[in-house]
Write a protein that binds this DNA or RNA. Structure first.
Length: 264
DNA sequence: ATCTATTCCTGGCTGC
DNA sequence: TGCAGCCAGGAATAGA
C-alpha cells in the first residue's frame, strides 16, 4: 500500500525523468484511471509540459504549463518508466524524449487525472506529515475527542499516513490505537510526533515497504517491511517487550499493537 | 463532532 | 484440481 514513504520514493525515482518533459500523448486503457473521463483527460494532458513534480501526502502533484496533473496510487498503483504493457496497465504518458511513464493498477482504485486546480486546493488535504513541527502536529490533534488511530488516518488532519505507518508510529510512541486524542498530554503528543517523523524518515531511507505490489519507477522493491515492529505481525513477539502482537479491527482497518507497551 | 457502514475493485488466499 | 467465498484497504459518501 503506497503511503507517504512509498510515494516519496516514487517521486524521487521519476522526478528527473519527468521535469521539463512535454507530454506528447496520453492514453488511457481504463476509464476508471481517468475518473470516468478518459477522452477529456487525454485531451487535456496531451501537449502539456511538466514544470514541476512534487508530493503532498499520498498525492503526486505535477504543475503543468496549463493546469495540473495528479496521481494517487491508492492500494495497488505503480508508476514505471518505460515498462512493457501488462494486463493491468491503465494509462501511458509518452514524452518528447522518447521515454514513457506507465501507470499500472490491478485493482483500479488509483487515479491519474488532469485538473484545473491541485488536489490540495480546497482544504481537503491537511499538511504533509513531514512538514509539521511538533507544535503544529499537537495543535491539529488537540480538542479532538476521536480515537487517535482514525484521526491519524484522516488526511484532512495530517496527510500521508496510512494503515502501516500509523500502527508503526503508535507502537514507537507507546500509545494504544484506541486512545482518545483529547486525553493525550503534551509529552505523549510530542512522542507521537517524534515517532511519526522517525518512522517516515526511516521508511524513506529504506525505499518504502513492499508488502505485495509496491515498487519504485525502476521496479525496485523497498525493504522497510523487514523493519515493521507490529504491522502484519499478529501473534509474533513485540521487539520491545516480547509480548504477542495483537490484531483488532478499528475503523474497518486491521490494527496491530502491543498490549503491554501501548497503553490507552 | 464523531461514529459506523457502504462503495469501489480484483489478485490471492482459504477451505471444501 | 477446481471453485466459491472472503479478505486486503484509501478515500468519498451517506446516515446515525
Amino acid at each position: 500500500m503506497p503511503e507517504l514513504p512509498e510515494v516519496e520514493t516514487v517521486l524521487r525515482s521519476i522526478a528527473s525523468r519527468v521535469t521539463g518533459r512535454l507530454i506528447r500523448d496520453a492514453r488511457y486503457l481504463s476509464p476508471l484511471a481517468a475518473d470516468g473521463e478518459p477522452e477529456r483527460m487525454a485531451a487535456a494532458l496531451a501537449g502539456r509540459r511538466i514544470l514541476e513534480p512534487r508530493r503532498k501526502g499520498k498525492y503526486l502533484i505535477f504543475r503543468l504549463d496549463a493546469g495540473w496533473m495528479w496521481i494517487h496510487l491508492r492500494m495497488t498503483g505503480r508508476l514505471l518508466i518505460d515498462a512493457p504493457r501488462t494486463p493491468w496497465t491503465r494509462a501511458i504518458l509518452e514524452f518528447d524524449d522518447g521515454h514513457a511513464l506507465v501507470f499500472d493498477d490491478p485493482r483500479q482504485f488509483g487515479r491519474l487525472v488532469w485538473s484545473s486546480a491541485p488536489p490540495d486546493d480546497a482544504g481537503r488535504l491537511g499538511p504533509d506529515a513531514l512538514d509539521l513541527d511538533s507544535v503544529e502536529f499537537a495543535a491539529r490533534l488537540r480538542g479532538r475527542r476521536g480515537r487517535v488511530k482514525p484521526l491519524l488516518l484522516n488526511q484532512r488532519i495530517v496527510s500521508g499516513l496510512g494503515n502501516i505507518y500509523v500502527d508503526e508510529a503508535l507502537h514507537r510512541a507507546r500509545i494504544h490505537p484506541l486512545a482518545s486524542a483529547a486525553r493525550l498530554g503534551p509529552a505523549r503528543l510530542a512522542r507521537l510526533h517524534q515517532a511519526v517523523a522517525e518512522v517516515l524518515a526511516e521508511a524513506i531511507a529504506a525505499g518504502g515497504s513492499s508488502i505485495s505490489d509496491y515498487v519504485d519507477a525502476d521496479g525496485r522493491r523497498g525493504w522497510f517491511q523487514f523493519e515493521h515492529r507490529v504491522y502484519g505481525r499478529e501473534g509474533q513477539p513485540c521487539p520491545a517487550c516480547g509480548s504477542a502482537i495483537r490484531r483488532i479491527v478499528l475503523a474497518q482497518r486491521g490494527t496491530h499493537y502491543c498490549p503491554r507497551c501501548q497503553r490507552i
